[in-house]
Amino acid sequence: MPDTINEIHPNKPTQVPQRTRMLRRFVRHRGGMVGLLLFGGLLVIAIFAQQIAPYDPLALDYHSTLQPPSPAHWFGTDDLGRDILSRAIWGARESLRVALLASAIGIIGGLVFGLISGYLGGWADVLIQRIVEIMLAFPTILLVLSIVAALGPNLTTILIAAGISTIPIYIRMIRSTVLVEREKEYILASVALGAGQFGIMARHILPNVLSTAIIYTTLGLGGIILATSGLSYVGLGAQPPTPEWGAMLTEGQRLFRNAWWPAFFPGLFIFLAVVGVNLLGDGLRDLFDPNMNV
């Protein structure tokens, strides 16, 4: 009696690995690809800001103040003669760094507490869920403002505040995924084989909730970019002359009676970044879990 499938069908073509199939499906997802190109493009700009930016983002040039867009300055200059394109490129680095780090804080916190809460259950679950309830009981923005009030207005504070304020939402999402995963038979098998609780969490549950975590993080990133840039815009985040999109908007608004471009371009970058991650997030969700309801 043959003991493997290959012995029954010796000439059966090897199956395309699941990873390749997923990749092909994603490439065919138009929105997801547009999102990936947009956001990926901005990330490349952020990483290579030094090489790409035509001017020093902080360099003042009193001979060309408030110039409209031209071949020399594609996005024009501000009232101090600084090149807005260069500032927007460096702004990508500041703004995306803050948003990505904030997301990282949120999802890592969400994973740690969500895993503990969902897998261990018991008093840890009760305690974590009560805290989550209180944190979710008032708007995210208030939590953020409380933290900014405590630590003082600057970019690092915004990063920490935005990160912490998303933790409870991620805990909820991760916990519900863990609760489903925990009941599967392979977990029971691991327990029967004598695997420890933390071993099971790290080796089995974590990899299986990771795709969900990635989707949620991407879908939440747009909101974080809008929030962190917005807080910089009202003066609670990046302080001048830092080239950060939100802070650039503040300077742009001061000039809008005379010139539209200093406010237009940084906002356009924020918009494109958010469109990019939203499309990417929708694409990833369709790919991994079409039934997920977010």
Binding site: S229, L249, G267, I270, V274, V275, N278
Partner: peptide, 12 residues
């Protein structure tokens, strides 16, 4: 609608 920064739309 979901992606546009309201504060930017306001300024513009």
């Amino acid at each position: 609608g979901l992606s546009i920064p309201g504060y930017w739309l306001g300024i513009i």
